[in-house]
Design a protein around this nucleic acid. Structure first.
Length: 262
DNA sequence: ATGGTAGGTCTCCTA
């Protein structure tokens, strides 16, 4: 049975309840993974989402910061959440579908502005978080699994608007990309978005600070959908909803979608 | 090289 999964850093699920509902109405992904909900679990406006058919959810919330949720039209069980790097942050939650597929939803730390763990504690925490992701997937090789989220790293040269200009900018430094690759290789994860769209520049985030995000187009692909090899060949039809960056009171991230025939 | 915007909260932190 084919199903579509979407991931979206929503930057306050309460403020952006109307555009979450818009995505649910217009695109109707079977599963919607949100990051940066920025509220306690019980403050997520679930009534609106339930009325649109999203009756199942697993979430890890936190006051003001972080927070991840998986909203699903398909029955889904809570498959846990892990505090990677022991930060005490709500940055991971997992759900299991009736077809045995496990869905991981991650919000990797942004890492601050200075790409040096001596000068900037947050950068070290980001690298440590990625190392623990690697260890987690090395310890138990995942199968029939999909991993999505705001990974806060644009790994490829064509995942940023200017590769050379961003080499020392957090989100595109070689050491971050090495750490992300190690986590990807440990789980044998396939980058589904790039499997479907192998060529050309792709972005899922444009800064709020740009005067003209669309015209300048200084984007980065920070949001990802990965899958294990046993189901990666079932994936097709990946899309990045660039238009959502222009919706009313937008997030700085846009939804990334993929369909799986399983 | 710099500063630009946004959200949550309670005076500034994080992105």
């Amino acid at each position: 049975m084919p199903f579509t999964i979407a991931t979206w850093n929503i930057n306050s699920v309460r403020l952006r309840e109307p555009i979450v509902a818009r995505l649910m109405s217009e695109e109707a992904p079977d599963i919607l993974c949100l990051q940066e909900c920025k509220c306690l679990t019980e403050q997520i406006p679930v009534e609106t989402f339930e009325a649109l058919g999203y009756r199942y959810r697993v979430a890890r919330g936190q006051k003001s910061y972080n927070g991840v949720a998986i909203l699903s039209k398909l029955p889904m069980m809570d498959a846990g959440g892990h505090d990677f790097a022991a930060l005490g942050h709500a940055r991971h939650v997992a759900g299991r579908l009736e077809n045995g597929v496990t869905v991981h939803n991650f919000y990797v730390p942004a890492g601050g502005d200075i790409p040096d763990r001596e000068e900037n504690e947050k950068f070290g925490q980001k690298l440590d978080f990625l190392s623990e992701m690697r260890d987690h997937f090395r310890w138990e090789t995942p199968d029939r699994s999909i991993m999505v989220g705001d990974l806060n790293i644009a790994p490829r040269e064509d995942d940023v608007w200017n590769h050379k200009a961003l080499l020392k900018i957090v989100s595109h430094t070689p050491i971050e990309i090495e750490h992300l690759s190690a986590a990807q290789e440990a789980g044998k994860w396939v980058d589904i978005t790039r499997q479907d769209i192998p060529e050309g520049n792709l972005y899922s985030w444009w800064s709020y600070r740009a005067a003209d995000w669309n015209g300048a187009d200084k984007g980065r692909r920070l949001d990802h959908i990965w899958a294990t090899p046993d189901i990666s060949s079932a994936a097709h039809g990946s899309r990045i909803l660039r238009d959502a960056r222009g919706w009313e009171q937008p997030s700085d991230h846009v939804p990334v979608l993929a369909t799986f025939d399983l």
